[in-house]
Simulated scan of single mutants.
Amino acid sequence: MHGHVILSHGSDSGPGATKVSALAELAEAMGWSATRPDYREDDKRGHAGSVAPRIARLRAHIATLKAPPVLVGSSMGAFVSGLASLQTPVAGLFLLATPGHIPGYADVFDLRDELPTLLIHGQHDEICPVDEIQAFADKRLLPLLVLEDDHRLGASMDAIAQHFRLFMDIVTNHPQATVQ
């Protein structure tokens, strides 16, 4: 067993969502354990109101683990995964359709430096326009894969899975991935 992956779904979604389900199955096939927290109760508080409870739920889950996990998130799940990485040790971040900010929430998107990180975004994302995350990635010198897709990234699952496999290989071989 390589380690653990926590996959966080977006708003208006659930732990059985297509992307997080497919990536959880892939992680398990690669020898990782995986969990998908259920944030639907938190999401009833609205977008801005759900951020802090989602982060608290994610951090509480991380605290039960023996080693830092890889965080995978889609949309709101990506936003809270990045913010959680500032407060809790993690082994890597694989973030999809990440919003640069949540209207009404005080903090903008951020993440811990010096972690294996890959940002993936749809060129035609109608909910989280690509320019915000592009500016963030450029400023922080982070890899950003922009796909010919929309917010759901539904037409890009094969490409996402391919990059996820490569990313997990990098995390497995990254020295910090085993540091607690």
Rank of each mutant, 00 (worst) to 15 (best):
P116Y: 03
A161I: 10
R59C: 13
V5Q: 00
S11K: 10
L153E: 01
G14A: 07
P89S: 05
V70D: 05
A52Y: 11
S156N: 05
L23W: 06
D169M: 12
I170Q: 14
G31V: 08
S74A: 14
S156A: 12
G3P: 05
V80Q: 01
D42T: 06
G92R: 06
L26E: 13
A161G: 15
D169K: 12
L58K: 02
E126A: 12
I120L: 13
V5N: 00
T64V: 00
L95H: 04
R165E: 10
A48Y: 04
S74H: 15
A159V: 14
L153K: 00
I170C: 13
V20H: 06
E114A: 15
R140T: 02
L93I: 04
G73V: 07
E28H: 10
G92S: 10
D107C: 11
Y105S: 08
H47P: 14
A34V: 08
A29W: 11
V171F: 02
P175A: 04
S75P: 10
V70I: 08
L147A: 00
L86H: 04
G46H: 05
L23F: 04
R112N: 13
G122D: 06
K19W: 11
P129H: 06
A34E: 01
A97C: 07
T178V: 15
A84W: 05
A84H: 04
H124A: 12
L147R: 02
A60G: 01
T98I: 01
I133H: 00
R40F: 02
H124Q: 11
P15W: 00
A97K: 05
F79L: 09
D169V: 10
L145S: 09
L142M: 00
L142P: 07
D158I: 14
A137S: 07
S21C: 11
G73Y: 02
A177R: 11
V20R: 02
L142F: 05
E132V: 00
S81N: 10
P69G: 05
A67Y: 09
G3M: 06
V108Y: 15
M168P: 10
S156H: 03
D125G: 08
K66Q: 14
I160A: 01
